[in-house]
Each structure stands twice: as structure tokens, then as C-alpha cells.
Design a protein around this nucleic acid. Structure first.
Length: 163
DNA sequence: GCCAACGTTGGC
DNA sequence: GCCAACGTTGGC
């Protein structure tokens, strides 16, 4: 399906927003808390340094792609799973003595001149975006592959300003 | 805040 | 290893 070059990652901006990423040292942050096997497997098996990722805000009034991040560190164990105080604590990982989840580091790469809303992506769906996972009902996967065609189509909607 | 979709859990 | 119950996601 995917050419494995581009991705989309969802986040709730209340938890971690693109602005949060911009405020981090080196504008880089570890993407912890992924607790879904399919999403984990994408990260573990297919994420490579240098790949670009759409940064998508969900669970807000206007869900939207707001920017682009770049993978700067490939998958490593997400130790938050072993931390009782973490919201991402996972009893099964603790029982096993090692985290069954992994994370990657991402760095801010670019911000769109304006957010590209889900509504807009759906309305442009007549063309290259009609098969994009994001716009399909019931699609909840927090990490999704994006094809080059889809990537290029999204980049035409709003100007990506390099950071 | 509702609720449909769908992933995970656990009894059998 | 089936599948009902349960929990979470995320658009609306």
C-alpha cells in the first residue's frame, strides 16, 4: 500500500501540540504513549531517520494537519510503560520486565501557513486524497502511512513554511 | 458529551 | 481460540 516514505501521526493538542514541539529544545521530542500494535509496528519496522510525518491535531473543533515533523531517531523502548506514575503505564509491560511499546523522536520540520482541516481534506477527496486513511469513517489508527501522491496533494493545499 | 467503530481482554 | 464485554478513539 504505502511506499513507506511518509506518515501521519495524530495527537490531541491538549496533550501534545505542534506548538509544544516547537517549544522543545532542538524542537525535538520523543513521541511516547503509542499503545496500539499496528501503530507500534509501523514505528518499529518502517520508521527511518529522515522520513517526514504530517502532524495532525484530533479531538478538537476543527481537526487538522498543522505541520510536518521529521524522524530523527528510530524506534526505541517506551519506558513510560514501566512508570507507574505515567498516564501511559502498562501493567503487562511491567509484569514482563520490559516495555512492549516503542517510541521515536521527531523534530519540527515545517508549519503550514494555515491548518489543513479534515473537512477540507474530505472535500478535496475527489482527487488524489480519496483513498487517504484519515478521511475514512471509523479510522482511528494513530499512525498512518501516507502515499507520495497523497503527500504531494496535501502540500498543494497550503504553503509549508520551513522551520 | 454522545455514540459508532473497533481494538483488547479474559472466561470458557 | 472463540467471542461477549469492555474500554478507547475521535468526529460530530
Amino acid at each position: 500500500m504505502s511506499d513507506g516514505l511518509y506518515w501521519l501521526m495524530k495527537t490531541e493538542p491538549d496533550t501534545f501540540s505542534f506548538d509544544d514541539l516547537l517549544s522543545r529544545p532542538q524542537q525535538t521530542e520523543g513521541w511516547e504513549g503509542v499503545r496500539n500494535y499496528m501503530a507500534r509496528n509501523f514505528m518499529r519496522d518502517q520508521f527511518k531517520v529522515g522520513q517526514l510525518v504530517f502532524f495532525y491535531h484530533s479531538r478538537i473543533e476543527e481537526p487538522a494537519i498543522v505541520g510536518v515533523a521529521q524522524i530523527v531517531k528510530e524506534a526505541y523502548p517506551d519506558e513510560a510503560a514501566l512508570d507507574l506514575k505515567s498516564p501511559y503505564f502498562d501493567a503487562k509491560s511491567l509484569a514482563k520486565g520490559e516495555s512492549r511499546w516503542c517510541m521515536v523522536d521527531v523534530k519540527a520540520y515545517g508549519q503550514f501557513e494555515r491548518p489543513i482541516t479534515l473537512k477540507e481534506l474530505k472535500s478535496t477527496a475527489v482527487k488524489d486524497l480519496q483513498n487517504m486513511a484519515l478521511i475514512k469513517p471509523g479510522q482511528r489508527l494513530s499512525i498512518q502511512p501516507v502515499t507520495k501522491k497523497e503527500w504531494d496533494a496535501v502540500l498543494k493545499i497550503s504553503l509549508l513554511k520551513r522551520i
